[in-house]
Design a protein around this nucleic acid. Structure first.
Lengths: 162, 162
DNA sequence: ATCAAATGATTGACCAAGTCAACTAATAAC
DNA sequence: GTTATTAGTTGACTTGGTCAATCATTTGAT
């Protein structure tokens, strides 16, 4: 099969890339958060609205509630519910996040506090700084090529995976 | 700076790719090995010669005659020496690997037993099967494109990183 | 030759990340 | 109204991984 070579290429890339992001993870470890905690923080930032926050106009109109429910987050991050809860407890204890009862009771709606958003901004700044240091050596043309390569890879792997 | 957009693209790719290999890791978790253990097994297979002293078929195939020393392996895999040793102990207990004194005494030379190589073959077969299932949906032309994209990304990230 | 750093390996004690199973609470189904 | 389901929650526990102290071998200085 002609795909066998591709399999080996992917594994080679895997080794390479895993090593690379391993370096970035180290900076993440400098932060007061576990890898899992950092992922939760990121995902909350991507999906949650602030505690006091109003839903956006469209969101209200079409009942698109983007504030994530605990189980939803657990599913997306592949975290055991019990463990996610511990992480969230830690966050609430530090005043970074809030857990409130949702409209459908029994469900819990998650949100970042202002302080949580600040923490997220800090964390993103740190990882961005690291990545920036990594790519700063690239010529503009190379940067464009890398961007293109990553997009292609994503698109192809995604169509393969679904 | 024009690189800022690239940084965000890399992070997006990171999320995507991490998720993807997360799926593959799951199959790895089905195996009796930890992720760390699996990595040690892989690396031993890539570098170690079998106990008898001749290079194993994998080593021969890739022209690697390098019997790894414990500290070397710990460095490459970024594992704490103490932890690597535990993994190796587990392997020797199961008859998968051997630890012998090297020429420079004080150093320890590692090798896979025949049984260890068999275990490695099994493990590689499993992960290859998963990857194959992933890419089988690609047209030949797409497969070539993916291969190209991964190679470009590797090259560019490598030159950036070093 | 001898003693002092230095490097690598090893061990036991320890910590914390993550799991498991049992339980509560709210909703949905019949 | 009773049962079954789904989400959440908690405490007990397992185990992956770390830390600090120790042993062993080597290297370098005097």
């Amino acid at each position: 099969m002609p795909h066998e070579a591709l399999v080996h290429e992917i594994r080679r890339f895997n080794r390479f890339y895993t090593d690379l992001i391993g370096l970035l993870d180290e900076t993440l470890m400098q932060s007061p958060y576990t890898l899992a905690e950092a992922r939760v923080l990121f995902e909350l930032g991507r999906k949650a609205r602030p505690a006091g926050g109003r839903a956006g106009f469209l969101a209200r109109m079409f009942h698109l509630d983007l504030a994530p429910v605990a189980s939803e987050l657990a599913g997306e991050l592949h975290l055991a519910p019990a463990y996610l809860l511990r992480v969230l407890r830690k966050f609430t204890a530090k005043g970074l996040a809030e857990i409130r009862d949702g409209p459908k009771n029994g469900l819990r709606v998650l949100s970042l506090t202002t302080r949580g958003e600040a923490a997220l901004v800090d964390l993103e700044a740190a990882t961005n700084r690291d990545l920036a240091r990594l790519v700063v050596k690239l010529e503009d043309k190379e940067a464009a090529e890398l961007s293109d390569a990553l997009n292609r890879a994503t698109r192809l792997l995604a169509t393969a995976g679904m």
